[in-house]
Amino acid sequence: MKRFIQQLPKVELHLHIEGSLEPELMFELAKRNGISLPYASVEQLKQAYQFDSLQSFLDLYYQGAQVLLNEQDFFDLTMAYFKRCQANNVVHCEIMFDPQTHTARGVDFATVINGIHKAQQQALTQFNISSELIMCFLRHLDEADAINTLDQAQPYKPLIKAVGLDSSEMGHPPQKFERVFALAKAQGYRLVAHAGEEGPAQNIWDSIELLKVDRIDHGVRASDDERLMDYLQSQQMPLTVCPLSNTKLKVFEHMAQHNILTMLQKGICVTVNSDDPAYFGGYMNDNFEAIADALAMTRENLIQLSHNAVDASFASDERKHAIKQMILEVSPR
């Protein structure tokens, strides 16, 4: 099964580029930029990765992002992720980035996006990995800040496929961002939002009905609402599920309790993703292996998860067809 997972072409739809900052690179960038970290070593930093909630992770996540200052930093961060993609047979990915995390520190929007985009171009030519960018708004900040970020993105609109909504879900419901999502839709962006991770199933409904999203990030709390489950199945509304993240942040205590297989068997368009892999213990193959092992998934289940991700992606129809052909080549007879 492990060999099959390695061979299976994959599409990742829920990846925060700042969350792929491995401890070794964090220390390297800190040294390069003259920034002192509150940890004496890589090992001590890794010991801090014991989270009891989404917020406990976010505190460390934003602290780690402080080392990203220059275009080269963002290029190096993104290239390191693409190398992981190549090793995990990820052939297309949709990368989330948080400009507010950086502009609030005085880092120009251009610095962030140019570094990431140059890595995207290199990954396409060097590894044949296609990618799209998703600009996320931080939901713990106000909507005016999000609208300002949308305005800052205007010169770089051709480089950004979609907008999203991340950070602390509790206390920051989707309706807080209804106007900025309407503006983004009018400007032609695709729309996604984190919902139903720590927050209730109602946040998923509100993201669909108020924000008009094309897909839901996380969405595991949908299983609390049978009517919502029926809707997700009938509309084939994609969920970008992140199994290792869910157990690391105690959404589920153990992987054996995860509901991804149940949702898959109900015909819901669930997908597998790594979220913030540097912090949550694994990239795509690790996530596939974890659910295959804990939930006794079949090869057909895993193939369906890959097909779902292709269907749910914002890739061109031509690229989707090409990836599906790759998946067919490893499908069991």
Results as ranks from 00 to 15, higher is better:
residue 2 K to Y: 11
residue 4 F to V: 04
residue 7 Q to P: 07
residue 7 Q to T: 10
residue 7 Q to Y: 02
residue 16 H to G: 11
residue 19 G to E: 01
residue 21 L to D: 03
residue 21 L to H: 00
residue 24 E to M: 06
residue 27 F to Q: 06
residue 30 A to D: 10
residue 35 I to M: 07
residue 36 S to P: 04
residue 38 P to R: 02
residue 41 S to C: 08
residue 42 V to C: 11
residue 44 Q to Y: 10
residue 45 L to A: 11
residue 46 K to W: 08
residue 51 F to S: 06
residue 53 S to Y: 04
residue 58 L to V: 05
residue 70 N to W: 10
residue 73 D to F: 12
residue 75 F to T: 08
residue 77 L to F: 09
residue 78 T to A: 05
residue 78 T to R: 00
residue 82 F to D: 02
residue 83 K to A: 10
residue 88 N to A: 09
residue 92 H to E: 08
residue 104 A to C: 04
residue 108 D to A: 15
residue 111 T to G: 07
residue 112 V to H: 07
residue 115 G to T: 09
residue 117 H to C: 04
residue 121 Q to M: 12
residue 121 Q to G: 09
residue 123 A to Y: 03
residue 123 A to V: 02
residue 124 L to K: 15
residue 130 S to M: 07
residue 131 S to I: 04
residue 133 L to M: 13
residue 134 I to G: 00
residue 139 R to G: 08
residue 141 L to M: 15
residue 142 D to F: 07
residue 144 A to F: 10
residue 155 P to D: 09
residue 156 Y to G: 01
residue 162 A to P: 09
residue 164 G to K: 01
residue 165 L to T: 06
residue 167 S to C: 12
residue 172 H to D: 10
residue 172 H to P: 09
residue 174 P to N: 08
residue 178 E to Q: 14
residue 181 F to L: 03
residue 183 L to H: 07
residue 184 A to S: 10
residue 185 K to T: 08
residue 186 A to T: 12
residue 186 A to W: 06
residue 190 R to E: 15
residue 193 A to T: 05
residue 195 A to C: 05
residue 196 G to P: 06
residue 203 N to L: 00
residue 207 S to H: 02
residue 208 I to T: 04
residue 208 I to Y: 09
residue 209 E to Q: 14
residue 211 L to R: 05
residue 213 V to W: 00
residue 219 G to I: 00
residue 224 D to F: 02
residue 225 D to A: 04
residue 227 R to A: 15
residue 228 L to D: 00
residue 229 M to G: 01
residue 241 V to F: 13
residue 245 S to M: 00
residue 247 T to K: 10
residue 253 E to G: 14
residue 258 H to K: 03
residue 259 N to H: 12
residue 263 M to D: 01
residue 264 L to H: 08
residue 267 G to Q: 05
residue 271 T to N: 04
residue 273 N to C: 08
residue 275 D to M: 00
residue 276 D to P: 11
residue 277 P to G: 03
residue 295 L to E: 07
residue 297 M to N: 02
residue 297 M to W: 03
residue 298 T to D: 07
residue 298 T to A: 05
residue 298 T to Y: 07
residue 302 L to Y: 06
residue 302 L to K: 02
residue 304 Q to S: 14
residue 305 L to P: 03
residue 306 S to Y: 04
residue 306 S to W: 02
residue 307 H to Q: 13
residue 310 V to N: 03
residue 311 D to S: 13
residue 313 S to K: 01
residue 314 F to W: 14
residue 315 A to Y: 04
residue 316 S to H: 06
residue 318 E to Y: 11
residue 323 I to N: 06
residue 325 Q to N: 13
residue 328 L to G: 15
residue 330 V to M: 02
residue 331 S to H: 11
residue 331 S to A: 15
